[in-house]
């Protein structure tokens, strides 16, 4: 259909949808950049060059670099179990894996404080061992891992289910061993779905706020991730600084969206199962 074949009703619907999306989604994005450059490029760059901002960036990258691979391995194991085998409790397992999505991020942080905080179940033990989890990088990683737990698994499960087990069985009749079958047959077949899941997992890991905020203690230069740093600057009325750091996160979101869309267009066939769940 081209614009010429557009009916007045259709045009009105398109206009309504675009207005809604513009006001709700595009305007906030534009606002981030507008506020960041409110006092010019110089102020923006100065705000970004601040050592605390760099420390926050480093921590954000570190946390993502730890939690994303862990959840990718978990996602592969969970998808292999659920998609390739039939066993009692299979659907319960699927439900459990999806559950962290329906839990408040603050609660996902709270549970770690209940375990490892000063008054937590394991708090005294940790203190004796001299290990600090809460108000430390470890806590930030644990909270991030919990929040991003389902991302890779839920992309891979429908994809592997759709692909079935024929190719793996064929590989076995041809003499391939378990790891050969996994690395040479299964993994190449789901690589784009895996990448898609990793991409979304990474975006959430780098952008997580609520869960991390509860466990981090907001120690500047130490346990402050980029989103937390945005909050600190904002609460100190350093709006240019807050929005400048926010542009980095918004840029990450835009890159994620671009890569995600590129994956969806180029590997539509493989990802069809993923988008349909």
């Amino acid at each position: 259909m081209t614009l010429r074949s557009l009916t007045p009703g259709g045009a009105a619907l398109i206009l309504a949808a675009l207005t809604a999306l513009g006001l709700l989604v595009v305007l906030p994005l534009a606002m981030v950049f507008h506020e960041a450059f409110r006092q010019g490029l110089g102020a923006y760059l100065t705000a970004l060059a601040e050592p605390d901002a760099w420390a926050a960036l480093r921590l954000t990258l570190l946390v993502a670099a730890i939690s994303v691979p862990l959840n990718a391995v978990f996602g592969l194991a969970a998808a292999w179990t659920i998609a390739k085998f039939e066993f009692p409790g299979r659907s319960l397992l699927v439900t459990l894996i999806d559950l962290p999505f329906s839990i408040s991020p603050v609660v996902s942080g709270l549970v770690w404080v209940l375990l490892f905080g000063a008054h937590g179940w394991l708090g005294p033990l940790m203190q004796e061992l001299g290990v600090q989890v809460i108000f430390n990088v470890t806590g930030v990683v644990l909270a991030t891992v919990l929040v991003t737990l389902p991302f890779v698994a839920r992309e891979l499960i429908p994809l592997m289910e759709q692909q079935g087990t024929d190719e793996e069985i064929a590989a076995i009749t041809l003499g391939a061993g378990p790891w050969t079958t996994f690395f040479r047959v299964t993994l190449p077949n789901v690589k784009w779905g895996l990448l898609y899941g990793v991409l979304l997992c990474n975006a959430r890991a780098m952008g997580e706020f609520g869960a991390v905020s509860v466990v981090s203690g907001h120690i500047r230069g130490l346990t402050n991730t980029l989103p937390l740093h945005v909050e600190i600057l904002y609460n100190e009325y350093d709006f240019v600084g807050a929005f400048a750091v926010a542009t980095v996160l918004a840029g990450l979101a835009l890159v994620t969206l671009a890569l995600k869309s590129a994956l969806e267009w180029r590997h539509a066939g493989e990802l069809a199962a993923v988008r349909r769940h």
């Binding site: 024929d166 190719e167 069985i169 076995i172 009749t173 003499g175």
Partner: peptide, 28 residues
């Protein structure tokens, strides 16, 4: 199954979709 050295041809082919024809044949 792996050790039997029995050639199996499946109803829905079960070809490795990410491998070329030659790679499929060479796999075993």
């Amino acid at each position: 199954a792996r050790a039997r050295r029995i050639g199996m041809v499946f109803q829905h082919y079960a070809l490795f979709r990410h491998m070329s024809v030659a790679q499929n044949i060479a796999f075993g």
